[in-house]
Computed example of a mutant assay.
Amino acid sequence: MTTDRPSLRLGTRASELAMTQSGMIADRLRTECGVDVELVTISTEGDRSSAPLASMGGQGVFVAALREALVRGDVDFAVHSLKDLPTTPDPRLTVAAIPRREDPRDVLVARDGLTLGELPHGSRIGTGSPRREAQLNALGLGVEVVAIRGNVGTRIGKIAAGDVDGVLLARAGLLRLDRADEATEVIDPLQMLPAPGQGALACECRVDDDATTRLLARLDDSDTRAAVTAERSLLATLEAGCSAPVGALAEIADGDHGDELWLRAVVGDVSGSPTIRLSATGLPSEAAAVGERLAVEMLAEGADALVAAAL
C-alpha cells in the first residue's frame, strides 16, 4: 500500500541500541505502510559527554538535538526511548505513535551466572540510575553500587574486566539487541519497578506535518499508550526527572466491567530508606488522571522531600 508520503527521513542516535530500535520502526513502515525510510544519525549531548546523566539534567540529554533536527526539517520524524523524553510536551512536536511495548522489567547481568540473592556480601553492582540504586539498596543485600555509564556492551564488558560483579540493565534493550540470554536474572517488579516508560518507543514528528502524523499513527498501540501515559503523568506531577529515584509500572488487565489500568509506583532515597510504595487503579481512558492521583497521594506521604533530595 502506498501513501501520500513515499519516503521519510528518520532521525536517530548513532548508538547500536538506538539504531536497532529505529531500524525496527523503519522496517515496520516499509512492510506495513509501503514507504521508504532513510535513517539519519544525529549526535546528542548525552552521546558526547561521559558525565553522569543526573548531573547533565537527566531527561532530555538524548532528545534535544533530535528535536531541533526535526524542527529545522532535517528529518521527518525521530524515534526515542520513551523514558528519555521530558514529560513537558514540546508544542512544536507530537508523539504520533507509541508502538507495542517491549518487556519493561530490569535485569541483572552478573559474573558466574549469579542472581541478586546469590551475590556475596560486598559485591559491586554497576548502574547509572538513581532509581535502580535506591531500590537495590532497599533490598538490604549488602552490595555496593558503582556508578557507570556507556552502551550495553560497555557496561557488560565491565564484568569481564573485573570492575564490577554485575550490572543492572533494561531487559528491553537486551531483547532488541538479541542479547537477552546474557541476563542472569529478570528482576520481579515487586523488587524493582522500572523507569516510567521503560521498554516503550516514541515516534515524534512535527505537529503541523499531518501526512507523517497519520502514517505513524498506524503503529500506535492503545494499551501501551495508556500505560505509559499513566506512568509519565505520575512523573510529571511529582516534578521529577530521571535524576530522581522514581519507578512506575502500569498494566492493562481484565476487570469486572472491562479493561482496567493498574499503576504501581515507588519513590525512594538512594540510600534505600525511606521508600514510598503505592498503587492505584482506574480506566485506561483516564490514564493521565490515574497517574496524577497516585502522585498526589505519594506527595502527601512525603515524596516531595525525597524528590527534592535527589535534585
Results as ranks from 00 to 15, higher is better:
residue 73 G to I: 11
residue 260 E to K: 02
residue 54 A to W: 12
residue 221 D to P: 07
residue 259 D to L: 15
residue 61 V to T: 09
residue 4 D to S: 15
residue 3 T to H: 13
residue 310 A to W: 00
residue 34 G to R: 03
residue 126 G to F: 10
residue 230 A to D: 08
residue 305 A to G: 07
residue 60 G to A: 05
residue 120 P to C: 00
residue 124 R to Q: 08
residue 156 I to K: 06
residue 95 V to K: 11
residue 161 A to C: 09
residue 156 I to W: 03
residue 106 D to P: 13
residue 254 D to V: 12
residue 273 S to L: 12
residue 86 P to G: 02
residue 131 R to I: 07
residue 119 L to V: 02
residue 36 D to F: 10
residue 101 R to W: 09
residue 172 A to G: 12
residue 223 D to Y: 14
residue 77 F to C: 01
residue 167 V to E: 01
residue 280 A to V: 09
residue 61 V to A: 09
residue 113 G to S: 05
residue 84 D to N: 04
residue 267 V to N: 13
residue 230 A to F: 00
residue 73 G to Y: 14
residue 75 V to F: 01
residue 186 V to A: 10
residue 155 R to I: 06
residue 204 E to G: 13
residue 126 G to Y: 08
residue 309 A to D: 09
residue 71 V to E: 07
residue 258 G to V: 02
residue 162 G to P: 09
residue 283 L to C: 11
residue 42 I to Y: 03
residue 45 E to P: 04
residue 169 L to C: 02
residue 274 P to E: 04
residue 270 V to Q: 13
residue 51 A to Y: 12
residue 160 A to K: 03
residue 67 R to P: 06
residue 96 A to L: 04
residue 253 A to W: 08
residue 253 A to C: 13
residue 29 L to E: 06
residue 101 R to Y: 08
residue 223 D to G: 12
residue 18 A to I: 05
residue 85 L to K: 09
residue 301 E to G: 06
residue 170 A to W: 00
residue 190 L to Y: 11
residue 36 D to Q: 11
residue 193 L to G: 00
residue 40 V to M: 08
residue 290 V to E: 08
residue 102 E to P: 04
residue 129 S to N: 06
residue 207 V to R: 15
residue 275 T to W: 00
residue 65 A to I: 10
residue 298 M to S: 07
residue 75 V to Q: 02
residue 192 M to G: 12
residue 51 A to N: 13
residue 279 S to G: 14
residue 29 L to W: 06
residue 44 T to Q: 02
residue 141 L to W: 13
residue 123 S to C: 00
residue 254 D to N: 06
residue 22 S to T: 04
residue 119 L to A: 07
residue 232 R to A: 11
residue 248 A to C: 01
residue 70 L to W: 10
residue 258 G to Q: 03
residue 62 F to Q: 07
residue 182 E to A: 07
residue 127 T to V: 02
residue 11 G to I: 09
residue 23 G to N: 08
residue 175 L to G: 11
residue 82 L to V: 05
residue 84 D to P: 01
residue 132 R to C: 13
residue 311 L to P: 07
residue 271 S to G: 15
residue 97 A to R: 07
residue 253 A to H: 15
residue 62 F to D: 05
residue 188 D to H: 06
residue 235 L to W: 08
residue 274 P to G: 09
residue 49 S to N: 11
residue 290 V to L: 09
residue 271 S to F: 13
residue 308 A to V: 04
residue 118 E to W: 04
residue 77 F to K: 06
residue 271 S to C: 13
residue 151 N to M: 09
residue 165 D to C: 00
residue 254 D to G: 08
residue 14 A to P: 05
